[in-house]
Design a protein around this nucleic acid. Structure first.
Length: 288
DNA sequence: TGCCAGGCCGAAA
DNA sequence: TTTCGGCATGGC
């Protein structure tokens, strides 16, 4: 099978499949992408630091070694998956809304993010807007993450470990502006640190089993669990329903939305609809 | 000022 | 089993 990418000289990678940095950054699945004045993005993932920028239609410059690209970023960006093929499974006549969403939001990919970071990030996400989620996570990383220096001299912070969060002073935790979620973050950190739950074991669990385990954690309900399964366990059929998806399902699918039609990629389609509906809303094209 | 944000917990029915 | 009030905080 033909590869989705081709590595050229000097960190340049040609990407043939769906790939849009801005759409990924704005898709609400990741909270530590930072847009740069150059038009590129700064990404922190499992202690690694990357700057990536688009230099031509399908050409991207990755500011890292070829080995780092192959061992870290290729997998993180899910470059082995063919998103164009996933979009082409949608039947335009059967589902115009999903089809339109997938056309408009083509370029989104499901990042293979760190399981622990996703768990805490989505606990923090509850009942908050995305900019505020990013702010809290940024402060949390600065307060309890490991300070590092990128090859280009940029200072950055890794996502804090369970122990680092458990060790935080109350004052320091309060400065993260987590509100009532602070007690959830602390409790889950303790559960993981003390071995009450084995997160790595979830990689071998089915969707149902993983959901049950996750929902046993203090502060993790159905929606956060589904986000963890989708973004942290890479089970692309998980279908998180938040306030936006509730609006979409009630307005666009009053007779019900079939999860059986497009298995096993419901989570990807959810991502297109989520992003598209938020775009519509922001552009006042709905008369909401 | 009031309402909302990638919801969850605990109590009441 | 479902429903509902309360919850921290900031942006609009």
């Amino acid at each position: 099978m033909k590869r989705n990418y081709h590595i050229r000289e000097n960190g340049v990678v040609e990407i043939f499949d769906d790939f849009d940095l801005q759409k990924i950054a704005d898709s609400g699945q990741c909270f530590r992408w930072k847009s740069l004045e150059s038009g590129g993005y700064q990404i922190i993932h499992q202690g690694h630091f990357l700057i990536v920028e688009q230099i031509d239609e399908q050409m991207y410059r990755f500011h890292c070694t070829k080995n780092e690209f192959l061992e870290i970023w290729k997998e993180y960006l899910d470059l082995e998956e063919n998103y164009r093929a996933i979009r082409q499974r949608i039947n335009k006549d059967e589902d115009l809304f999903l089809y339109t969403a997938s056309q408009k939001e083509a370029g989104i990919r499901m990042l293979r993010q760190d399981l622990w970071e996703i768990l805490i990030s989505f606990i923090i996400s509850q009942n908050r807007s995305i900019p505020l989620i990013k702010k809290s996570i940024e402060i949390l990383a600065e307060k309890a993450g490991e300070r590092k220096i990128a090859p280009g001299g940029q200072v950055y912070y890794s996502f804090p470990t369970p122990k680092a969060i458990c060790d935080m002073e109350q004052e320091s935790l309060d400065s993260c502006k987590l509100g009532y979620r602070a007690k959830y973050v602390k409790a889950v950190s303790q559960s993981v640190l003390e071995g009450e739950i084995d997160l790595s074991a979830l990689n071998n669990a089915g969707e149902e089993e993983a959901r049950k385990e996750l929902m046993g954690l203090y502060g993790v309900g159905r929606k956060v669990a589904d986000c963890v399964i989708l973004y942290g366990l890479y089970q692309k059929d998980a279908f998180p329903i938040d306030v936006w998806m509730k609006k979409i399902l009630s307005r666009e699918y009053p007779d019900g939305y079939s999860l059986d039609r497009y298995r096993p990629y419901n989570g990807v389609y959810q991502q297109y609809m989520f992003a598209y509906y938020r775009w519509l809303s922001a552009n006042q094209n709905l008369g909401l």
